[in-house]
């Protein structure tokens, strides 16, 4: 087979995937960028203009939404990763019933976000909710988990962490089981403390997994907003509104697809920036075997 046919064959093999990518990723991206410059409301205007981006700068709600999204990612990502590692270490030991324990930690991940949110709606509900009933049992005042603007975002975070940590645990568990026991035997000979073992052996060898999980966790922090539809609808007064939900609101509640497109471009830029940061900076520090 000469080189040309090999080339053609290769492209033919790539073609189905390319078609799908082009139709469902590249074309929509281009359309979105186009619409953000040429659209106004649901319609297209005749000229290119910057109105949508100008509004981006004036929009006070957007400022709050961005700050919410930042804190949401900045808190849920590290906490769920730390919890995932802790849970993975815990269920990696040889215990009786460890299978059940693993299942228990993994269950939240199996449930769809919408059902999780519906369950938590009744945990958080002020009068009939589980959390306030427990608080009441200890004589504490009821907390308006979803209705207090100072708390609502944290209530969402707690649920997200609960749901995400189990998922990441699976990756860590798999990674832990690939670490050679020899390393631990050697460390035992040196009489290393458990913390040293974790710091010098386990954690560095988990770094590739951490990078993978980190990328996924950050993406999810921006991508997963299903629970907002059930729990707070971004309220009260936008205190728990996140960027993707705000895009949805603009596109489908306000029918301002043009502005939603401009917001989507913003989201895209943020995600590209974060991806570059992660792969550019962190990957250098990751130890691959």
């Amino acid at each position: 087979m000469n080189n040309t046919t090999r080339q053609i064959q290769a492209w033919l093999l790539l073609l189905p995937a390319l078609c799908l990518l082009a139709a469902f990723t590249h074309y929509p991206v281009i359309r979105t960028v186009w619409r953000s410059f040429a659209g106004s409301g649901v319609r297209m205007s005749d000229t290119l203009h910057l109105d949508n981006y100008r509004y981006l700068l004036e929009d006070e709600v957007l400022l709050q939404v961005l700050s919410n999204s930042f804190w949401y990612a900045a808190i849920t990502v590290p906490v769920s990763i730390a919890l995932a590692i802790a849970m993975a270490l815990w269920v990696n030991t040889k215990l009786r019933g460890v299978g059940l324990l693993r299942l228990a930690y993994f269950t939240p991940t199996l449930l769809p976000m919408i059902s999780v949110a519906n369950i938590w709606l009744f945990f958080y509900s002020t009068e009939i909710g589980l959390l306030n009933n427990i608080l009441g049992y200890f004589g504490a005042d009821a907390v308006n988990w979803l209705g207090d603007p100072d708390i609502s975002l944290y209530s969402l975070m707690a649920m997200t962490i609960w749901k995400e940590a189990g998922f990441f645990m699976i990756f860590y568990l798999a990674a832990l089981q690939t670490i050679s026991p020899d390393l631990y035997h050697a460390a035992a000979l040196e009489n290393a403390s458990r913390w040293t073992i974790f710091k010098r052996i386990t954690f560095p060898l988990l770094m590739p997994t951490t990078l993978f999980v980190l990328v996924n966790a950050i993406l999810n922090a921006f991508k997963l907003v299903d629970h907002l539809f059930i729990l707070t609808k971004g309220g009260p007064n936008n205190s728990s509104n996140l960027l993707l939900y705000y895009i949805f609101e603009n596109a489908f509640s306000f029918f301002d697809t043009a502005y939603a497109s401009a917001l989507t471009v913003l989201l895209l830029i943020i995600l590209v920036f974060l991806a570059l940061l992660q792969f550019g900076v962190l990957e250098k520090r990751v130890h691959y075997r």
Partner: peptide, 20 residues
Amino acid sequence: MPEGTIEWGTLRQNFLEQKT
């Protein structure tokens, strides 16, 4: 009435469970 916002979705349940 409780301070803060009151959830539309669970209000009927609150009424039926005699919380209000």
